[in-house]
Design a protein around this nucleic acid. Structure first.
Lengths: 236, 236
DNA sequence: AGGAGGCCATGACCTGGGTCAAGGGGGAGG
DNA sequence: CCTCCCCCTTGACCCAGGTCATGGCCTCCT
């Protein structure tokens, strides 16, 4: 943390331009296109658990993660459950849909997962005006939103039609495929997989007993990748 | 039907402009903005069951329903189940996401629900170029996609976290709130509600026995609206 | 060192939803 | 008019997932 703060003296617009021009969404645009946008950006640092925005807020800001990660989630079942929609790391947009949908209130909460998490904040009005007025940017943004939507659709479809074992296997393959991986808490995993902590615990135990994974102090390692892939439903 | 066919001699571009300028997505744009787009449009008529496109197709065309309706759905569980994503009526876009996402293959199938169903076909390349080059259009399209995404999210979230009874009650309230409504087949309803025909039959029977709805030859009428609203989970 | 709170693990039990199978009715076509 | 076929209906059974409750471990704070 102290290390990454060695260059805090660079002005925000410079860092913002650097960040934007290396992001997947805006990376294709020319620096000339991005500079006016970057000039409007400010940075904000959050601690784990700190909320970036809440469902119902009018989206006045577009965020891009600079470091750390942000979890976007909805609260359902009358507050008894959380469903994580996605987790965004560096160079990824948060609140894209809300900002571009017009004045609709945000449909989800967003919270920092790590300390520190730094985000670039861009005023929604400026973003809209600039993006819509620059065809290359508009195309990139729409493509990005569309891709996000497709991912979300696939995930929720999985929640509806596949079993917990499949989803957990898929998660493990995605996050622990190469080398060990520090598991989130069962509660966070449950929010991601659309279930409750007890069942995460059970299934992890089952996978362990079957010799599919190694589990030690929340560090997980894949032992039997082919079997996990079979469980994940490559053809089920 | 015959009545609406009394003016088939109007040239396509004129009808296309008429349709586009009265649509929610493009309605806000000026006729001058829309005319070049309309000039590229052609109409196509489908019979019930006819496919507009298939999942996996590269989206070369943006469709706007002119009359009839189109069901967009995914096939899941290795072909054993269908999940209806949405049903679009006149003046609504179909395949919006696919067209604007770039070259990604379509994630869903689309099929006509009625005979006849007429759609306006707009070449994807022309649409992209024109929309991205016209800020007002770009804004409208992005807002539309974003809204669609929010709806889809809410629906799928409902599939995951609410019970069949709630979903069916919500469906009845939405479609049969005022006056009688011709029910789709149980199979179609099941695809919409994310379940199987047997359970639709059971739940409908249950609602009937409880005196919540009237059912006669597939015509349904809401009898006890307050109770249905309670079941639909306004606060559950 | 001790206490407290959070997280994990595990057992017992319940229920909604899905599957399978059998029976019935209505419409289309011969 | 009869027959076939499709779809709806209904019953019996099964199971994944969810809930509730208990007990243990680890960690952090005092």
């Amino acid at each position: 943390m102290a290390a990454s703060d060695h260059v805090p003296t660079l002005p925000d617009p410079v860092r913002a331009l650097e960040l934007l021009s290396h992001s997947p969404v805006f990376g294709g645009a020319s620096p000339a296109d991005l500079r006016p946008l970057a000039a409007r950006g400010t940075f904000r640092t959050l601690r784990r658990g700190e909320l970036l925005f809440r469902a119902g807020d009018v989206p006045e800001t577009l965020f891009m993660v600079s470091s750390g990660s942000v979890r976007v989630y909805r609260v359902v079942r009358g507050g008894t459950r959380e469903l994580t929609l996605h987790v965004e790391g560096p160079r990824q947009l948060v609140a894209g849909v809300g900002v571009f949908a017009g004045s609709d209130p945000a449909p989800a909460h967003a919270v920092a997962l790590q300390t520190p998490t730094e985000v670039l904040c861009l005023p929604a009005a400026a973003v809209r005006e600039h993006v819509f007025g620059t065809p290359a940017l508009a195309a990139a943004v729409i493509a990005s939103l569309a891709r996000r939507q497709a991912e979300l659709l696939a995930r929720l479809e999985g929640l509806v039609f596949s079993e917990l074992g499949e989803r957990l296997a898929a998660y493990l393959l995605e996050h622990a495929a190469d080398g060990p991986h520090a598991l989130p808490t069962n509660s966070d995993l449950a929010a991601l997989l659309g279930t409750v902590p007890e069942l995460v615990s059970r299934k992890l135990g089952e996978f362990y007993r079957l010799g599919l994974i190694q589990l030690e102090r929340r560090q997980v390692r894949v032992l039997d990748r082919p079997e996990l892939e079979r469980l994940a439903g490559r053809g089920g």
